[in-house]
Write a protein that binds this DNA or RNA. Structure first.
Lengths: 246, 246
DNA sequence: CGAAGGATTGATTAGTCTCAACGCAAGTGG
DNA sequence: CCACTTGCGTTGAGACTAATCAATCCTTCG
């Protein structure tokens, strides 16, 4: 029975085979200090001293930066299983904020627990670093997305990524996935206005590539979507390493 | 006499106090395997298997991504002392490329040496992670820069960053620094065409904020430049302020 | 001296933003 | 249960930023 599954173990399993002991460790770490938060509340704000490693358990969160004149850039979407900032302790202050996008459940892992866990299991340590490196890789892809692609390609690319990540976590049945974002949020993530996001979505719909109802994204033609987005999932590094689980 | 100074020790000293033993370790790591490369040559290409941690010793390098249709996004500029990708070994394939922008001297640190060094000195380990976290932080700022700022603000911001980083390393006398980049490269870094970069530079010049001759950038009015760029150096996490090079 | 890469300029166009209004659905308080 | 509010999506017109295309000019360098 109890095999200690959690979003975190599922997330890390995309990269390494965890032993039952690993799972137990991770489960414990993620159970000690669980919080809930309403949508739109900050988990931690720009300028704060980092307290802990946060792990999303339920709901979506985001990383964002606000310019002095109010413009906001969303830097990342965090879905269940995602970690925020392994090793943030090293930095004295947050240079951006984390906030709940939906009602959120998340766990805080204290610095000491985090370090103990990495010391206790080389597999966990490796998986955590993998997760961290993937985060950076995604950030680079976002820079490229915003810097080089047109609005149309950009939204298509974001959708491919969001779908691929949820699929990797095993919670994307068939060709659809959750998308609990407003058009304003999509705009702040892609460097577009919500008005233009709206028109771009209409075009994607008209061309029968996507359907968007409620908080669900339906990919009607994933192949063509990936093509117009020039999407290749390699930057997500979803290649499993099979280390003999002992 | 030999106090084992190198661009790498200078870089890491922006964050921690290194002991003489630390410096010696770092110096050794960076001396074992030094390469030179002509401008425009790849150090390592997208899709390659990561070999080693690279450290820039002389000249500038860049991190970039190329879309399938040829568009290129420059993701980062690397100056002497900068490390490329601590722990890349964990990933199987590069998801972007590294290339020399100018004639380049760089060192390769083998995986084993890198890990030994981190194990041998907690200060070095911490400093290396600091460096890694700052890299990510800069990447997030670039996303924000491209996503939210106008061409004018964007170029101004990039210049502020380039200047601040060189100043932190102690090789920016007064209000000027190196800028060995073509307008095309500036464009690929900021998501603009070289033509528009050219016009934006003219405006910055006309307004007496910068001067740009040869491969040098002169800040005529750093204060105002920072203001229009909405630049705050906090994301560089230069917690320790360097004393000017002697 | 000629070639080549880079910078500059001009004219035109495309893509995205701005502003402003309106529609619709869900939630709230009386 | 209705009137009101609020948040989000949609639409239109017009303005403006940045891209495109195409020369031309400079500089550097072999």
């Amino acid at each position: 029975m109890s095999d200690f599954r959690s979003p975190l173990t599922d997330h890390l399993s995309a990269f390494v085979d965890l032993t039952p002991a690993d799972r137990e460790l991770l489960h414990a770490a993620v159970s000690r200090n669980v919080h809930t938060l309403a949508a739109r509340q900050d988990i931690i704000s720009d300028g704060d001293r980092p307290r802990a490693v946060n792990v999303v358990l339920e709901g979506w969160a985001m990383r964002y930066k606000q310019l002095s004149d109010g413009r906001r850039q969303i830097l990342a979407f965090l879905i269940p299983g995602d970690l925020c900032d392994a090793n943030v302790f090293i930095l004295k202050r947050m240079d951006h904020s984390l906030a709940a996008l939906t009602a959120l459940r998340y766990a805080e892992i204290a610095q000491a627990d985090f370090e103990d866990m990495m010391a206790a299991s080389p597999r966990i340590a490796k998986a955590l670093w993998w997760s961290e490196l993937v985060t950076v890789s995604i950030q680079r892809e976002w820079t490229t997305n915003i810097g080089q692609r047109s609005a149309y390609e950009r939204i298509a690319h974001l959708f491919c990524e969001i779908f691929a990540r949820q699929q990797a976590m095993g919670f994307a049945p068939a060709d659809s996935c959750e998308l609990p974002l407003t058009q304003l949020e999509l705009g702040d993530a892609t460097g577009l206005t919500s008005v233009h996001v709206n028109r771009t979505l209409q075009q994607l719909r008209k061309e029968r590539m996507i359907e968007l109802r409620g908080r669900r994204l339906q990919l009607l033609d994933p192949e063509r979507l990936r093509e117009v987005a020039m999407f290749s999932s390699s930057y997500l590094h979803l290649d499993r390493v099979r280390t003999p689980a002992r």
